[in-house]
């Protein structure tokens, strides 16, 4: 399901999924020139130090560590369960919530701080107009080895 080509036809699932000129998707972020805090998404003012006008747009890393997770067994109607809801800290700053895929949805097999990659893929669902979306997922860095 993971594809990094042709993703430009898909609408970004969140505004911080952007595309390079050659079509490759990336995560867009901001870095505060005053305190160095890194944010997911573009912004003009720093939530941490309140500095204005010194925010730099940056590309966020696609490598990170699993900071936190839960295995979701019951969600809103129509949402396929179980799935792993994960909080990942990216190398170089910024943190993201998203689904951790290619793992057993079992708390015993998941390890805090396990290295993960951010991968881009079709979200797997269409909106009412049939529009499809490009999202990110997390995958264990040794996923290919496991398979």
């Amino acid at each position: 399901m993971t594809t990094e080509t042709g993703s430009a036809d898909l609408k970004p699932m969140t505004p911080f999924i952007k595309h390079h000129a050659d079509g490759r998707p990336y995560l867009s972020g901001s870095k505060c020139g005053a305190c160095g805090e890194v944010y997911v998404g573009e912004r003009s003012t720093c939530a941490r130090c309140a500095a204005r006008g010194v925010m730099e747009t940056v590309e966020l890393s696609t490598k990170g560590k699993l900071y936190n997770f839960t295995v979701v067994h019951r969600s809103f109607p129509g949402v396929v369960t179980p799935f792993v809801s994960a909080i990942v800290e990216l190398e170089g700053g910024g943190s993201l919530k998203g689904n951790l895929i290619d793992v057993e949805p079992d708390p015993k097999t998941l390890k805090f701080d396990m290295p993960v990659d951010v991968v881009f893929a079709d979200a797997g669902k269409a909106d009412r107009q049939g529009g499809r979306y490009l999202t990110y997922f997390f995958k264990p860095q040794n996923a290919q080895v496991r398979a």
Partner: peptide, 14 residues
């Protein structure tokens, strides 16, 4: 309202 729900894609918000 528009798009698709992030629930179960961008983790869980319940």
């Amino acid at each position: 309202e528009t798009g698709i729900s992030p629930e179960g894609i961008l983790g869980s918000m319940t």
